[in-house]
């Protein structure tokens, strides 16, 4: 007999040996909580959406006063209005993609839709990072163009006893270090998210994709 026929025969034979769950056991099962990756992705995406859109609110009003000295308030206000409109578009797209995920699709399409949903949020994070980098470059450029105003605003009455030039250097280095640290943390975070949650999904999706091309 062919080996595969043998396997098939054995497979059919096993039918009788599977446990039969009772009505009550099934009832209990359907009231348990799902731990599917779609659920996890949803939670993580919501946290990310809230985190990035809430980041601005974490900055105390006092720190914003410095921007008045550079006449940057209106500029920042306008960018915020644009920013939140874009955030809104992202949330809408995320919701739309998330809702489209259906477990009754073909395996291929289901994976595509999950990846699409996740990508929306990835683009959202990239957008935020790009915006923060861009804004800091603009703001820094303006601030460093007026070094006297900046030293006066950040180090009033020369509280920290350093020369102006040295102070500017410290400011610049501190900002670069902060940027590197933040990007490093983000990189680790995404390695973890993708490592744990999406590695298997991506691998399976790739396998189906390579098959189709």
């Amino acid at each position: 007999m062919d080996e595969l026929d043998l396997l098939k025969k054995d497979w059919k034979k096993q039918d009788a040996s599977y446990p039969e769950l009772s009505y009550n056991e099934i009832y209990k099962l359907i009231h348990k909580k799902s731990s599917s990756i779609v659920k996890w992705i949803f939670i993580i995406c919501i946290v990310e959406l809230l985190f990035w859109s809430g980041l601005n609110l974490l900055v105390p009003e006092k720190y914003l006063e410095i921007y008045d000295k550079f006449n940057l308030r209106t500029f920042l206000y306008v960018t915020q209005v644009i920013h939140y409109s874009i955030v809104f578009i992202f949330i809408y797209l995320f919701y739309k993609n998330y809702k489209a995920i259906s477990v009754t699709e073909t395996t291929n399409l289901l994976m595509q839709k999950i990846i699409k949903t996740r990508k929306t949020v990835n683009y959202y994070v990239y957008y935020n990072i790009a915006l923060y980098v861009l804004l800091s470059v603009i703001v820094n450029f303006i601030m460093f163009s007026n070094p006297e105003t900046m030293i006066e605003a950040l180090n009033p009455n020369n509280k920290i006893n350093v020369s102006g030039a040295k102070f500017l250097n410290i400011m610049l280095i501190a900002q670069i270090i902060a940027l590197v640290v933040i990007i490093g943390l983000l990189w680790i975070y995404y390695r973890i998210i993708y490592g744990i949650l999406l590695k298997r999904l991506n691998r399976n999706y790739k396998e189906l994709e390579t098959l189709e091309f």
Partner: peptide, 15 residues
């Protein structure tokens, strides 16, 4: 329908 959801869960959704 059960085959499909069963396999989708095993391949994609299950952690």
């Amino acid at each position: 329908w059960m085959y499909r959801i069963g396999l989708n869960t095993a391949i994609t959704l299950y952690r």
